[in-house]
Write a protein that binds this DNA or RNA. Structure first.
Lengths: 189, 189
DNA sequence: GACTCGCTGTACACCAGTGTGCAGTGGAAG
DNA sequence: CTTCCACTGCACACTGGTGTACAGCGAGTC
């Protein structure tokens, strides 16, 4: 069944999210399958992780590209991006752990395009004076979306997923004044 | 020689900073010593890591406790803390990586007291209305000092250590208005 | 009914890292 | 000169994860 492959990917994403160093055995077990079967679909652990990353990057890139294409102001675009990313942010938090670690090089490469789009958006905001310039856009964008994942993480343990808090926090980092940040975060359906 | 033990600790801190999963062999080699010798000083890998963490926590806790004891306003105290932490922040960045990972439980426990002091300071700032309340103090403090380490990290690759940028960024996260944050960061000798 | 195909189950070989044991060796201290 | 001690150098056992090989087995398809 082709659905097995997808189930493995889904389960692997979830499992690696909690335990980035889970082995092929654990992933197989969690997917209700024998270890050998996982190797039928993914010849090596790296193949699995790469496929997983490509999936996540494709989805996130699509959202960001769409948001970025509109001519909305950078701060509004950022809010839109976080709002659409949030529901699945905790699913993809494994990406942060994966960058460091064995396959760091490979994963980092795959994330490159996403990083660039993110930096572009922040750069645009800085040029338009809606974001602060205390840090270069490339670094600031990383920190800002890193913090969103960090909050999504802790929110999981906490029980209450709070998109509003994540949005406000990232806007504050980007140099948006608190009042404006709150207004932006709140005037969404 | 007793100096060997210290050299191992120093080298291990540096090496684990770049490569958190470096083995005892690599650490030994980096310290110019044989693997067996490392085990003479630290019966297990966990012993090494724990000793390392205790060292770092002791130092950071001392600084924070001192800063926290003064009756300065919370924002000024935070700036003081970051200013004194910054010169060695990149040395201790391994702590962030160590929390997740094999010995996470143990390391997390050792960092507990530091976390509490940090949360206390932020809580005080929130109560005095100098820090924002978009997140609970415990989480906000973690994010704010996490971002300092992240900047220290990237600053290393970048060449330019910028304490000012790190201070401003963390203050922004804490809800301090940009102008005030810049003023606080700049009126230090 | 024979075939295919995806999955099972078990058995391997392999590697890297951990931790231990023990016989040195060289230098400093008595 | 001898004793001590930290360090060396090499041996080994153990663990846990990776990836492969091969003989199935059950459920659909022709």
């Amino acid at each position: 069944m082709m659905e097995t492959r997808d189930r493995i990917l889904d389960v692997a994403l979830a499992l690696l999210g909690e335990k980035p160093d889970a082995g092929m055995g654990e992933i197989a077990a969690a997917a209700g399958v024998v270890r050998r079967t996982v190797y039928d679909h993914f010849p090596s652990r790296l193949d699995l992780v790469r496929t997983l990353t490509e999936r996540a990057v494709a989805e996130m890139t699509a959202v960001l590209a769409e948001v970025n294409a509109s001519d909305a102001k950078a701060d509004a675009a950022w809010v839109e991006f976080i709002a659409r990313l949030w529901p699945v942010a905790h699913r993809y938090r494994v990406l942060l752990a994966l960058r460091r670690g064995e396959y760091g090089e490979t994963i980092h490469g795959l994330l490159g395009p996403l990083d660039e789009l993110l930096a572009d958006l922040v750069k645009r905001g800085q040029d338009d004076d809606v974001f602060a310039r205390h840090l270069p856009a490339a670094l600031l964008s990383q920190l800002a979306y890193g913090v969103v994942f960090a909050i999504a993480d802790s929110a999981l343990e906490n029980g209450t997923l709070d998109a509003r808090a994540a949005t406000i926090t990232s806007l504050l980092m980007l140099g948006v004044p608190e009042k404006h940040a709150i207004a932006l975060a709140d005037d969404r359906p």
